[in-house]
């Protein structure tokens, strides 16, 4: 069966429109001079200016960035360790349980994760007196927990692809297992680690549900701030703020994708060049 290209292009346009018109309209209205969010009153950047001078927004932004930075870093460390373990140690007691537990948060509803985290933190505070107050620490811990799953998945997939023999070769040449890890394994999978970090960072940056369960007084992340503001009505400064977030997250995801595909493309190109110069 032959489909006309016009048909395909139309379908594609509708698809993209469905996804992106809401976001585009939000971006357009963030430059709206009118105070009413839905009435166009001319072009203006005043909402961006007012955002920068709004302490609550700036504080929320920095808190979000701080949490994203710390949680992404820890999630990457833990996720990389779990990913390598799952890919390399194919036989150990409780492997199935471990791999199940690692990916369970992927399919667990966020509300459940959020509630269980909250209950856990309350119990912890009761028993050991820590964390005394919910806020930066509890949000960061919660973010580490669920974003490391994504890192684990990425690292595990990368490790399965890579040739076991290069690690054996390093060991054969005199390196102990921990040296092999730092000399060979980690450098080889470093693009995957970087893209895992970026993914964890963006996941943390735009999380609302889990953060709202484990946050405490005075610790409002950017998505939480937007959520609370929207409850009082959509104002153009929210549009401006959301536009900035879309931009940040978009750049993050795009960069992660670029890093992965560029290294892959370069490898293929080099392989072709080498093939041509074969003796």
């Amino acid at each position: 069966m032959k489909r006309s290209p016009t048909f395909l292009i139309t379908v594609m346009c509708f698809g993209f429109a469905f996804f992106y018109i809401p976001i585009l309209s939000m971006i357009v209205y963030s430059f709206n001079a009118s105070r009413l969010a839905t009435v166009w009153g001319g072009f203006s950047t005043k909402w961006y200016v007012s955002l920068v001078s709004n302490d609550a927004v700036v504080n929320a932004l920095f808190l979000s960035l701080k949490i994203a930075l710390v949680s992404a870093t820890f999630a990457t460390i833990l996720g990389t360790m779990a990913g390598i373990t799952l890919a390399r140690f194919t036989k150990f007691r409780g492997r199935t349980l471990f791999s199940g537990l690692v990916v369970a948060p992927l399919i667990m509803p966020e509300v459940i994760t959020g509630i269980s985290m909250l209950v856990f933190f309350i119990l912890m505070a009761d028993w050991v007196g820590w964390p005394g107050q919910r806020g930066f620490t509890t949000i960061t811990l919660a973010h580490i927990t669920f974003s490391m799953v994504f890192v684990t998945t990425i690292i595990q997939a990368r490790m399965i692809q890579s040739d076991r023999a290069i690690e054996e070769a390093a060991m054969d040449l005199g390196s102990r297992p921990w040296q092999v890890m730092f000399d060979i394994t980690l450098p080889v999978i470093s693009p995957a680690i970087l893209s895992g970090w970026l993914l964890a960072f963006t996941i943390s940056l735009d999380d609302v549900v889990i953060s709202s369960f484990v946050t405490g007084p005075g610790s409002t992340t950017l998505p939480l701030l937007i959520w609370s503001k929207v409850k009082l009505g959509v104002t153009p400064d929210i549009n401006a703020l959301a536009t900035l977030m879309v931009l940040t997250v978009g750049i993050g995801v795009f960069a992660a994708g670029m890093i992965m595909s560029r290294t892959e493309r370069r490898r293929q190109l080099d392989a072709q060049m080498a093939f041509r110069s074969d003796d």
Partner: peptide
């Protein structure tokens, strides 16, 4: 090694 296992 058969695959040469060079460090990429």
């Amino acid at each position: 090694f058969q695959s040469y296992a060079l460090f990429p």
